[in-house]
Simulated assay, not measured.
Amino acid sequence: MAKNQSYYFSHDINASNDPKIAAMISELGMISYAWWWILIEKLAAADDYKLPLKKYTFVALDNELRMDNEQILTSVQQVFNKNQHVLEQNSMCSFCSFLLIYLLIHDYELLDCDDEYFWSPSLIRRFEFKKVKEETIREKRRLAGLKSAESRKAKKQNLTHVQQNLTHVQQNQLIKEKKRKENNIERDTRAREDENLLSMFENEEVKNKPIYELYMKSIGVVSPTIKERLDDLVESYGKERVIVAINTTADNGGNSIKYVETVTAGNLKQEVQKDFGASKCNSNARSVSRKNSRKDEDVDWEEEYQRVHGKK
């Protein structure tokens, strides 16, 4: 056991009522009660709460307890009578503290000893109990510290997650804001392009302006290239056919100049086929009429009349 590092030890408030203590006070006087507690303090400060059975121990104790021979001899006259053999056999019997320790061990059983040390069993039990109690408290504090550390770690992790989530939200907001700005820029760019195209139409004499405006309204932006292709369609097929083709393209979900060109060419082809069919029908009708005319020329209408009316 390591040397005691405490500055106090437990003391029963009714220690003087202990029968052993009472017997000591009764035989040795009230001064023995002071000697007893001074001795306990020395034991509490010693390594392993034990003092050696050595001459230097009793020299020091005589000095600490301030015991003189006359006082101790007077107080323990009866002890001398009972323990003459101890006094005769022990060279340390001249020390008052030695005699006191002997009485505390053998007569009052307040101390215990072996061949090397003497000690207080009660004092050792109290310090053992105190040690266990302190270890229990330390263990509880250690567990509480671990729990507190885990709680702080969990809070820190939660805070980290919140910060990360907040960062994600902020990033999403930044992305949305960036996309919104890009859309605004694109819309403004398209508006400027439309204004530029319209201003381009206004800055010169534009004969196909209604075609361009209809295309922009129904299909999309009129670029210089699209403008040229629309001009070619008008020149090749006429404004009316191009207007019909643009409306047909919009109705069918088309969104390109190529679609308009295809529709325009298809409409013209249908017109040509229709006209060709009508011409063929007219030609056939004229041919039948000519045949019937020739038949009429060959018929003898006088004879036919007589046959029909039964005169022949």
Rank of each mutant, 00 (worst) to 15 (best):
N4E: 08
Q5F: 14
S6P: 08
F9L: 00
D18L: 01
A23D: 05
A34L: 14
A34K: 15
W37Y: 13
I38F: 01
I40E: 12
I40P: 11
I40G: 09
A45G: 03
L53V: 03
Y56G: 02
T57G: 06
F58V: 02
F58M: 03
E70A: 01
T74K: 00
S75F: 05
V79F: 11
V79I: 06
N81Q: 15
Q84D: 07
Q84M: 04
N90P: 08
N90W: 06
S94R: 14
F95L: 01
L99T: 03
I101P: 09
L104W: 03
E109T: 09
E116C: 06
W119D: 01
V132K: 09
K133T: 15
K140M: 12
R141C: 08
A144V: 03
L146H: 07
K147C: 11
S148Q: 14
S151H: 05
A154I: 03
K156D: 14
Q163R: 13
Q163L: 03
L166I: 04
L166W: 12
T167A: 14
T167I: 08
Q171D: 10
K181M: 05
E186S: 11
R187I: 10
D188L: 01
L197F: 15
E205Q: 09
L214R: 15
S218F: 02
S218E: 13
S218T: 00
V221H: 10
I226D: 04
D231W: 04
Y237I: 00
I246N: 03
N247Q: 14
A250L: 00
G253W: 01
G254D: 11
I257S: 07
I257E: 10
K258P: 05
N267C: 05
E271W: 05
K274W: 03
R294W: 13
E297N: 07
V299K: 04
V299L: 04
W301C: 05
E303N: 14
K311T: 08
K311D: 06
